[in-house]
Design a protein around this nucleic acid. Structure first.
Length: 836
RNA sequence: GCGAAAGUGGCGGAAUUGGCAGACGCGCUGGACUUAGGAUCCAGUGGGGCAACCCAUGGGGGUUCAAAUCCCCCCUUUCGCACCA
């Protein structure tokens, strides 16, 4: 990896920006006046805005620049609106790339990480983002990860952290296990390689205990994008149904989950996952033993992607029979590749007539198919079926349940199960517990000790942090944590019995670090607690959280989970962390490729700034598309931005020259005393304020800018305006631009004679009296086609407008020889005359 | 396969949510001023037609006085989930 080169394109002359860039001057002043330093406690109205915690992979790129420029714009507008603003940034500083860098260039991960942080921070300061740097956090520093460990201990104390042996996602490239969310689609989220499986004993968080609340509370996240809410709902995946206890002839229970208890008479086989723990404990008849073992070995050896790619369902008969507790019938138990060990009980009842997967499996192995549901329009015989019928319908061939319909049938079977103690209504979630241990060095050590005598013993809170050992460490992956090979680290005394014991050698998933960092921003220096409860109560929730959709089913679920947990144990007063979530679009290169270091198409904001200045670059980016859509980055757009800024600059200077001395930038004018031209401008000015407010709040900064451009176009040179109005227009335009062009606006504000900073000036408000117009231009349609325009008094009614049409020769011609069927008048918009 | 979103000039994108499609900008064309232009300013710019007008928001149907917007079918693209019983 190389740090971004800041050299101009080959052959280009070193150029001065077209407009002098005042950014350094203002950055220094802001710093000197501590403009962005948030108070400990908000005094008045508060606004907590933040971007998602970035991983410091090198210097920042255009994507970061766009993202932070958006939170910057929000922070600055809120400052002008009088809020106490908290706008912090920190670093998701643990994680694999640092370790990879350590291996490939013999740098300690910490050195590499802190170097990247320093460089990124320097760049962000140069582009003038309004972060309160006094609250910066880095998750890899002991004063931060001490509290990450503390979080782990709280979860453990409350029974939400546990260890279990299971088959887990294993990335052979990264040499570590992965959480389900990080192995979506069977590939590793970081390196993109196929994920394998491995049986290991690992730490898990019982996020499933919060599944219901995480799902239900999505309904209250009104200001989150719908797609994120849908993604989360699907990811958590609630299914309602029943658990049914099938039994072996010897009485051993084989519980299964089903969403269709009404199909229980249609069960013709049972299927168990090859890796289901239950399978190992079953007595398989000798005759079948070898075949079953061979199948299990073969299936379990496959990578997750290979298994998913298998179109054919495969299986083998175990020779075991299972008794249907409702019908009393005996059916064979198969091991089947399509059964997932992690869902439900890892075992299912096969109902081929009414489940497509079971149907395909039954067809392949010649298992019987029995219809037990009759739905409205299907009457095919079992042998003629080509697909399963999964619709609800009337129960048939179902003994005492015959003729029950749909949900009533489901309920009747569940009632029967419960009455006879052979099952119960149940809800299943697709969400799995969160696997949090990682076999790597560069993460927060898991604060647990394994003692032969006492078992698992948590590190006492007073002993935190458990520090990562420094010095010479072999980072080369061996399939176990590098910490396992450091005796000075691993060997400790048991806190309980004081006898020799071992530390847990693993570190935590970095998603833990980022699950609570927003709380640390609130109280970053606290060495007694992760944060102060009163400060948290005052600042939370986050008012505006900005990040990419890619975190919809990972970080954003974990972070909601932590918030709910901390509320439950009395640390927080909110149970949702963020009020507004905004998904920014990506920055792509001009060919539509995502900018990424590995593709080598990263554009550095530094080059752009040097060439064009900070604010023109911001304008070009904001202008190119709305905030939630991607940007295809091209340098051509910046030309328009420069021209626009230049025009505003001219206007501001000439307006100041015309007025000479002091003026009130928020002055109101009596429209009756203005000339017609002035009244039009004054109206335009206030219409612009209205539009800008509306557009800004939905991050449509492209139309925010276009509104101000229109205003600027309408103003022209401004020579036809009285100096007071001309100056107010200049001041207002400068304010409306301030969130987007902070440095230029400060400069203009100073030119206009104000100070010390525009960000303590009042955001413009709309003068309602300026808005009404006395006449409007409306479209005139005949039979829905626009045939002309007409300027009429603003309050003209339909009759008056029709009369105006009749007296307009060109329009009246369309009426000649026709009869009017009807007219539709939309005041201020159009008149449609239907003629025949 | 399932689910979600989106398809508008040469390009980025507007359109108060059913009311003049193409705002604003880039690019392009012409002009002005210039020793010069990657500067600035002015004008033009969806397609067709001398015109009245006609055609245009992926394609095809429909609802409506009126559709980029609502409904149905199809095509394409992007994203998410991938046997969740």
């Amino acid at each position: 990896m190389t740090m971004t080169d800041h050299k101009p394109p080959a052959g280009a002359q070193p150029l001065e920006p077209r407009i002098p860039d005042p950014s350094a001057k203002w950055q220094k002043r802001w710093n000197d006046m501590a403009l962005f330093k948030a108070p400990e406690f908000p005094q008045g109205r508060k606004y907590f805005v933040m971007p998602m915690l970035p991983y410091p992979s090198g210097d920042i790129h255009m994507g970061h620049f766009r993202n932070y420029s958006m939170t910057d714009a929000i922070a600055r507008k809120r400052m002008m609106e009088g809020y106490d603003v908290l706008h912090p940034l920190g670093w998701d500083a643990f994680g694999l790339p640092a370790e990879q860098a350590a291996i490939s260039r013999n740098l300690h991960p910490e050195e590499w990480t802190l170097g990247n942080i320093a460089q990124s921070k320097a760049t962000l300061q140069k582009v003038g983002i309004s972060f309160d740097w006094s609250r910066e956090v880095a998750s890899c520093l002991p004063d931060y990860y001490k509290w990450t460990q503390w979080m782990f201990l709280q979860l453990y104390k409350h029974g939400l952290a546990y260890r279990k042996e299971s088959e887990v996602n294993w990335c052979g490239t990264c040499n570590t296990v992965l959480a389900n969310e990080q192995a979506a689609g069977g590939v590793c989220w970081r390196c993109g390689n196929a994920v394998g499986r491995k049986t290991l004993t690992q730490w898990f968080f019982k996020i499933t205990e919060y599944a219901a609340r995480l799902l239900d509370d999505i309904d209250h996240l009104d200001n989150w994008p719908d797609n994120v809410r849908t993604l989360q709902r699907n990811w958590i995946g609630r299914s309602t149904g029943a658990e049914v206890e099938f039994r072996l002839p010897d009485g051993t229970k084989i519980p299964v989950f089903t969403t269709r208890p009404d199909t229980i008479y249609g069960v013709t086989f049972m299927a168990i996952a090859p890796d289901a723990p239950l399978l190992a404990s079953l007595a398989i008849p000798d005759a079948r033993r070898a075949a079953v073992d061979a199948f299990v070995t073969r299936t379990r050896g496959k990578l997750a992607v290979e298994r998913m790619a298998d179109e054919e369902k495969e299986g083998v008969d175990t020779g075991i029979v299972v008794i249907n507790p409702v019908s009393g019938e005996q059916v064979p138990l198969w091991v089947a590749s399509y059964v997932l060990s992690g869902y439900g009980t890892g075992c299912l009842m096969g109902v081929p007539a009414h489940d497509q997967r079971d149907f395909e499996f039954a067809r392949k192995y010649g298992l019987p198919i029995r219809q037990v549901i009759r739905s409205a329009n299907e009457a095919t015989s079992e042998s003629g079926m080509t697909v399963a019928t999964e619709d609800y319908g009337t129960m048939i061939n179902s003994g005492p349940f015959n003729d029950q319909v749909g949900q009533a049938g489901v309920d009747a079977v569940i009632a029967h199960l419960e009455k006879n103690c052979i099952g119960r209504a149940q809800i299943q979630y697709r969400l799995r517990d969160w696997l949090v241990s990682r076999q790597r060095y560069w993460g927060a050590p898991i604060p647990m000790i394994h003692c032969d005598g006492c078992g698992i013993v948590p590190v006492p809170e007073s002993d935190l942090p458990v520090l990562l050992p420094k010095g010479h460490i072999d980072f080369l992956p061996k399939g176990r944590s590098p910490l396992a090979d450091i005796p000075e680290y691993i060997n400790v005394k048991c806190p309980k019995c004081n006898r020799p014991a071992q530390r847990d050698p693993d570190t935590m998933d970095t998603f833990l670090c980022s699950s609570w960092y927003f709380l640390r921003y609130i109280d970053p220096k606290n060495d007694q607690a992760p944060f102060d409860k009163k400060k948290a109560a005052a600042w939370l929730p986050i008012d505006y959280y900005m990040g990419g959709v890619e975190h919809a089913t990972g970080h954003l679920i974990y972070f909601r989970f932590f918030t709910k947990f901390l509320k439950d144990i009395g640390w927080l007063t909110v149970d949702e962390p963020a009020r507004i979530l905004f998904n920014h679009g990506m920055v792509m290169d001009s060919t539509g490729q995502v900018m990424s270091k590995s593709k080598g198409n990263v554009v550095s904001p530094i080059d752009m700034m040097r060439l064009h200045g900070v604010d023109p670059t911001r304008v070009a980016m904001f202008f190119s598309s709305p905030g939630d859509k991607e940007v295809l980055w091209s340098e051509t757009g910046v030309v328009g931005a420069e021209r626009f800024i230049h025009r505003v600059d001219q206007f501001v200077r000439s307006a100041k020259a015309a007025i000479g001395g002091k003026f009130d930038p928020d002055a109101r004018f009596d429209t009756a005393k203005l000339s017609a031209a002035e009244r039009d401008i004054y109206r335009k000015l206030h219409q612009t304020i209205l539009k800008v407010d509306r557009d800004f709040e939905v991050m449509q900064l492209n139309t925010h800018l276009s509104a101000v451009m229109e205003l600027s176009g309408a103003l022209g040179s401004g020579e036809n305006l009285r100096p007071e109005l001309r100056a107010v227009c200049a001041a207002t335009m400068v304010k409306l631009l301030a969130p987007l062009t902070p440095h230029m606006s400060e400069e203009w504000w100073e030119i206009l004679g104000f100070g010390p900073t525009i960000f303590r000036a009042k955001w413009p408000s709309v003068d309602e009296a300026a808005l009404p117009t006395d006449s409007v231009t409306i479209a005139v349609q005949f039979n829905g086609k626009v045939r002309g325009q007409l300027t009429v008094p603003a309050d003209a009614d339909e009759k008056a407008v029709v009369a105006a049409v009749q007296s307009d020769a060109k329009l009246a011609a369309h009426l000649a020889g026709k009869s009017v069927v009807k007219t539709i008048h939309v005041p201020g918009r159009l008149l449609n005359i239907v003629v025949k």
